[in-house]
């Protein structure tokens, strides 16, 4: 296939960026979107130009580092896949593809298509953990029975890879889906109860501090999330938050 790429180029965090157009040829449907960008970068390097910077690591949909707003949607037009899992067969010969970084005040651009998502790390650090005594008498996790449905829901919440597509898709750049997945993962398990109240309060406080927008329940996050994280998690976080606030 022959394609026209319109890519956001920005030299560094403070530079003013702009969209640049690149024609590209010999793209096959079996290539992943990132492989297509590899082809472009090889081309650019051969011509002595600066390659396009983008985030990636595992290239199999588990690390959450690939991002990219592709034709107006995070991770592109396909559902339940990350950018690295997106196949070029989703596009047609002659298409123009617009590629932008995930946009949010809390995700500043580092260079080109790479953004700084450390705001997510700080939300995690604010409470996304359980304290376990490791002094030698650690309790086996399996010794604590967990109801099947709760175990399943906690597991699904835990499949969030922290990619940030929820923020990128949201018209308010809200991080509620991510944060709620991290809160839910523990709220559903007995091991998470000890710190339940402080966890949700601290994580939401950190989320607000980072400058994410307010959730207005458009549901865009759930649709665009590569892991299918459900809006039920947001409702659960709202409940947990109310409960924790009322406890004082």
């Amino acid at each position: 296939m022959k394609l026209t790429l319109k890519i956001w180029r920005q030299a560094n965090a403070t530079a003013k960026g702009s969209m640049k157009t690149y024609p590209i040829e010999d793209i096959e449907g079996d290539m992943s979107f990132l492989e297509m960008l590899d082809v472009l970068n090889e081309d650019l390097i051969n011509k002595g130009e600066e390659p396009v910077v983008f985030d990636h690591d595992c290239r199999e949909g588990i690390c959450g580092s690939c991002s990219l707003q592709i034709n107006g949607e995070p991770h592109g037009p396909d559902r339940l896949v990350t950018t690295c899992q997106l196949h070029m067969r989703m596009f047609n010969d002659g298409d123009t593809i617009v590629i932008e970084p995930f946009r949010a005040k809390a995700f500043p651009v580092i260079k080109d298509l790479m953004v700084d998502r450390s705001s997510f790390d700080r939300i995690q650090q604010a409470g996304g953990y359980v304290s376990v005594n490791t002094s030698g008498n650690t309790i086996d996790a399996n010794a604590t029975p967990v109801q099947k449905e709760n175990a399943d829901d906690a597991f699904y919440a835990a499949t969030c890879i922290g990619c940030g597509a929820c923020v990128a898709a949201c018209k308010n750049a809200s991080a509620m889906l991510f944060t709620s997945a991290k809160v839910s993962q523990y709220a559903l398990l007995p091991q998470g109860q000890v710190e339940a109240a402080t966890r949700v309060l601290n994580m939401v406080e950190q989320m607000d501090k980072e400058g994410f927008g307010n959730c207005t329940n458009t549901g865009a996050c759930e649709i665009e999330c590569p892991k299918g994280i459900s809006l039920e998690n947001i409702a659960r976080m709202n409940r947990e938050y109310l409960k924790a606030s009322l406890q004082g």
Partner: peptide, 24 residues
């Protein structure tokens, strides 16, 4: 506040693919 949360807007943004007009 929500407008401020995305200081630079997208060149291409397809909200209709993932949410209703009413909600946006």
């Amino acid at each position: 506040q929500n407008r401020n949360a995305r200081a630079i807007s997208y060149k291409s943004y397809k909200g209709s693919k993932n949410s209703t007009w009413a909600s946006r």
